[in-house]
Amino acid sequence: MSIVVKDLNYVYNPKSPFETRALHNVNLTIEDGEFVAIVGHTGSGKSTFVQHLNALIRVQSGSLVVNGINLHDKKCDLKKVRSLVGMVFQYPENQLFADTVAQDVEFGPKNMGMSQEEIDVCVKNAVELVGLDWETVKNKSPFELSGGEKRRVALAGVLAMQPKVLVLDEPTAGLDPVGKHEILTLVKKLNEEQGVTVIMVSHDMNEVYENARRIIVMKDGAVVYDTTPEDLFALEDEIVKMNLEVPYMAQFCNYLRKHHVKLPKGVRTVDEVLKAVNALKGGSNV
């Protein structure tokens, strides 16, 4: 069970003056339980690519198989695909519409045709999973909540469909540091504890560096890098050339490594780097 992409191409408005090539021979495989980040500039094709994964955009040429379902097949079961691959758009709180939190969160499960008992369980679990108190919020209007809470309700609306794959487009955009931390902790928990495959689109390289296990860099519709965070950001010059940021901790470690300081692999957060540097103390004259 996985996502297998072969020779995927996509052209917007084919055969018209507005024709634009959005995807160019994309080939990759994402296994169950991975935490993948997709980065690249606006117009790099990352948004077109991820919308293929739940058939919001249909395959034009090439093939895309998600958990054994061939999305090139016009008659594939869309509902099944969309419950399998949950998609959280940028500023998801803008899609809230129902009178109460409970009604909003059950929109997805209802569309999927679950039974009422199943729905009730899924909805409650999802709301609690995103860290909100079910009894307090269930009958509240989603519009009364704070910005961060709204975003979590919207996230719960997707999680209630119990997706195996979660696609997130800029999940922390517009949140303050604490709000960001809460969302990322939640996503990490889903990935580590429930084995949900996470595909996260993000502009924040620090965030990507600390959370993803694999980074796919897209440029002009093609995949230009597909590697681990450490290996990717070791290529500092190439990253800068692509107008992307190099995470602070990667800059720091790159500098030390370039000056022949031996650091262990996989140190990415401030505390990991601190520990690694402190470990150097023994062998030095400080």
């Binding site: 739940n54 969309r82 758009f89 803008n94 899609q95 929109f107 997805g108 609306g157 997707v158």
Partner: peptide, 8 residues
């Protein structure tokens, strides 16, 4: 698109 992704 967001509502379609929720099965609308």
């Amino acid at each position: 698109r967001a509502q379609k992704a929720r099965g609308a």
